[in-house]
Design a binder for these strands. Structure first.
Lengths: 209, 209
DNA sequence: GCCACCATACCGACTAGACGGTATGTTGTC
DNA sequence: GACAACATACCGTCTAGTCGGTATGGTGGC
């Protein structure tokens, strides 16, 4: 057995974990749930992972790898103008809202809610993963800010967090309402905010009327 | 024992549930966790609640009652200007970020993430509770819109959802980072967005330059 | 080219403990 | 004495994790 094929079971388990955890939450997900979905046995599971918590850690790493390449190859990076790239990101987030809820919601956001107080290492892994994605996004924000709003008092990073928070919160409402409609509407608000931030404004009263 | 005192145990259980579920999540919370925190026994628990799921439903109702009166008596309602009330709400949400994470995060947001796919009635209860709070908020938004941005194409309700989504998402990051700092920064962005929405704008290019 | 040796991958029955829920009291109040 | 509000002991199930075992494929000695 080649080493690539050798790890197929492990990959299947990780893929299964992403789906099941996003659907049922971490605590309610049983090892056998994941094994069943992956089509492997418990023996195989515990061969690849020390424990359920170890799987969670593996799942966050797997998630990071998947999402990083997914976003890296997305089309919104093409424009030369950084603001266009940023708005392209927001639009892209709207465009990928297909399939069922577990298909487009965020593993890390789900996971951290359940584990922040009880599983320090999982919490830290979620924090790292989300922060890394935001750091990537922040590069475009920084560039857009330099060009369109160099004097603004908000930081590029804080705006990156705001965008992600709006997304994460939108997912909560999508779950509550069983529909991505609210995500789309919130992305429209986000887009409007971004445009207002990057549209050079005369200060306060310096307008007609 | 009076009927008020008679329900003291039940209230203690509900209060305990709010805390423990927000800290550990619903699935990871055991009935005994809640009993211990409430200082009552399991017998008492199952006297008042048919099941753990029944407690969750009770907890959402309890949460709604608590938060409704909490926000109803908050000071931000006083201004006559609806925009001031709305900005007052945002500021108020920043002012109440005290204590530990489970003290200021939202039960319903936590709960719905874990239960949306597996517990239809709990999901529906969370949806109802969050929507009710938003409906309340939407009244001020509607009034502010009528006065300051009557022609704007966004709906008052969608803005209510956006505000709540930003809050819920901020709580996720607060948990990841173990600090409410990011919530405060996001509220600052939110405030900036609201001000921009309600500041009458000349259309597009009708500016200097 | 064969075989002993070994590591990795995988299997599935089993266990110990945790947990939701129940059955059976006990106590106090009207 | 009836009923609500507890309390305690207990039960059955579910589940993370274990453990002895098998299959497969690679490696080195001869």
């Amino acid at each position: 057995m080649t080493s690539a094929a050798a790890h197929e079971s492990k990959t299947r388990l990780l893929d299964a974990a992403l789906q099941v955890i996003r659907a049922k939450g971490y605590a309610a997900t049983t090892v056998e749930d994941i094994c069943q979905r992956a089509g492997v046995t418990k023996g195989s599971f515990f061969h690849h992972f020390k424990s359920k918590d170890d799987l969670a850690l593996g799942a966050t790493a797997h998630w990071e790898a998947m999402t990083e390449s997914f976003f890296a190859s997305a089309p919104y990076h093409q424009p030369i103008d950084p603001l266009e790239r940023l708005l392209g990101y927001v639009d892209f987030r709207g465009a990928i809202l297909t399939g069922d809820l577990p298909d487009y919601t965020c593993l890390l956001g789900t996971l951290v809610q359940e584990t922040y107080a009880t599983h320090p290492d999982i919490r830290a892994a979620c924090d790292r993963g989300m922060s890394r994605h935001i750091a990537e996004l922040t590069r475009d924000i920084e560039a857009a800010k330099k060009r369109y709003a160099p004097k603004a008092r908000w930081s590029a990073e804080s705006l990156g967090y705001f965008i992600q928070a709006a997304l994460q919160g939108s997912f909560i409402f999508a779950k509550a309402k069983q529909s991505p409609a609210v995500v789309r509407e919130n992305l429209a608000h986000l887009r409007r905010y971004l445009k207002s931030l990057f549209t050079p404004q005369d200060t306060a009263a310096a307008r007609s009327h």
